[in-house]
Design a protein around this nucleic acid. Sequence first.
DNA 1: ACCATGACGTTTC
DNA 2: CGAAACGCCATGG
Length: 111
Amino acid sequence: MKESDNFFEKVYQVARLIPYGKVTSYGSIANYLGAARSSRMVGWAMNNSHAQKKEVPAHRVVNKNGILTGKHHFNGTNLMQQLLENEGIIVIDNQIQELEKVFWNPMKELP
DNA sequence: ACCATGACGTTTC
DNA sequence: CGAAACGCCATGG
């Protein structure tokens, strides 16, 4: 563990703050953390999310297009899509529908 | 220090 | 419209 874990923890915290039935993008989280160009790092953090003590709702984090890019990391099937649909989010072909409605912007919602 | 990788994002062909 | 290339940055070998 290093001091840099703060960055990762921030990502996890924000991810856990995502309200039920809402989603956000890696870029938004990165931007909220002040690392607007480190969107990849957010995804990287999620990759480490499995190493975190607390579970991270990574299924609520998608790319800017609302595509479930990381579903392959969940179970390799439509699990991620099922989880989102279970929250009332419409997902078709790995892409979130009505993204504007379910999109949760941490910079706007969080202080 | 250098090279390779990655759950992104944007631009270009 | 779809695929590829480039950029950006942190982590690992």
